[in-house]
């Protein structure tokens, strides 16, 4: 079904922990969004996400353009037939700017990655990502919640109940955990430990990812961890500014990807390569092997859609990349 004069764009953001989808219209209003867990199987989760999205929309809305982002953006791009594949920094910045053109700082904390984006006059001027350490990201909070047997959804609110945060070393998650156990064995109540943890993680973020960055308001905080009220409060404590959390904080990456898709179709008009709503019925198989052509021993990945080869990557020399003929065949 195609509504007259209206175009719809799909954005898919597949990260380490969650898979998010968003559909926007021509005026960049969010029509519908989906947030599910990736559970280590990005192909399955994209298919599941598309199915849920289709059920939510209730009709076979025609998609004019599709974009993918997140750490699995390349794979996702192949599975949905994305028109544009972009990094998550650009996607998050665009989604935040769309919501509030005045925004000057975007903090994003997801499952494994945390980033900071500095914006001036609607233009990204600087950014940073966490390097090798995933301290203070969603997966660590998840792990601690399950260790303390507290549902992750209640984690933040519990922190708010405490007015006496214990001090926890936030430099490294391994040390943070032993510190937490130590405090718990001394008899500190769980809420104080959780609040202490939130503060440690906020400090860690500001000292590592945010190091040397000029953090100015308005500040937007998004990504899965933004659901944690304790984290928000800790950030407000250290930054001494009010922190805005967008209504759709958990699907901002997907909204950004959808905006990028819209932009791409305006810039280079063409028919979308989106495979359509029957993606969940398609059969995707990925196989991997090691190339023994040289001592680099590259790990090659092949993706097949309904038995047909659609993508192959991973080689340094490029010898396994699809040839023009193979690509044209698709």
């Amino acid at each position: 079904m195609k509504e007259k004069g209206n175009n719809y764009f799909l954005g898919v953001d597949v990260g380490s922990i969650s898979t998010n989808l968003a559909v926007i219209n021509q005026t960049q209003d969010l029509i519908e969004s989906v947030y599910i867990r990736t559970e280590g199987k990005p192909v399955d989760s994209v298919q599941r996400g598309i199915k849920i999205m289709q059920e939510k929309l209730g009709n076979n809305l025609e998609i004019t353009g599709a974009g993918s982002t997140g750490s699995a953006r390349q794979l996702t791009g192949v599975i949905v037939g994305a028109d544009i594949v972009k990094n998550e920094i650009t996607a998050h910045a665009l989604a935040s700017l769309d919501l509030n053109p005045e925004v000057q700082t975007v903090m994003e904390i997801g499952g494994q990655d945390s980033k900071i984006i500095i914006i001036r006059n609607g233009i990204v001027v600087d950014f940073a990502m966490n390097t090798v350490c995933a301290a203070g990201t969603g997966s660590f909070l998840d792990m601690q919640a399950s260790r303390l047997d507290i549902p992750i959804e209640d984690f933040g609110d519990l922190a708010l109940q405490s007015d006496n945060a214990v001090s926890i070393a936030g430099r490294c998650t391994v040390f943070a955990e032993s510190d937490m156990i130590h405090k718990q064995q001394l008899g500190h109540p769980a809420k104080d430990i959780i609040k202490g943890l939130c503060e440690a993680l906020a400090r860690n973020y500001l000292n590592n990812v945010g190091k040397g960055k000029d953090i100015k308001p308005p500040i937007m905080f998004q990504g899965g961890v933004a659901a944690n009220a304790g984290m928000r409060e800790s950030f407000e404590k250290y930054l001494e500014y009010e922190i805005m959390i967008p209504e759709n904080y958990d699907v901002m990456g997907a909204i950004g990807a959808a905006i990028l898709a819209k932009e791409e179709m305006n810039k280079r008009p063409r028919n979308t390569s989106f495979y359509g709503w029957d993606i969940p019925e398609m059969d995707f198989k990925t196989t991997g092997f090691e190339c023994d052509g040289c001592p680099n021993i590259c790990e090659i990945v092949e993706i097949r859609k309904n038995e047909q080869l659609v993508a192959r990557w991973g080689s340094r020399c490029g010898k396994w990349d699809l040839t023009d003929e193979e690509a044209a065949f698709i």
Binding site: K86, N87, E88, I89, T90, L94, I123, V124, N266
Partner: peptide
């Protein structure tokens, strides 16, 4: 790769007049 891509995007968009159209909803 993400950093390099984001950096290139940042440089391209900063000059791109189209971004202005996009950011004002």
């Amino acid at each position: 790769k993400t950093r390099i891509e984001a950096f290139i995007d940042m440089l391209r968009r900063s000059e791109d007049e189209q971004t202005l159209l996009l950011t004002t909803k």
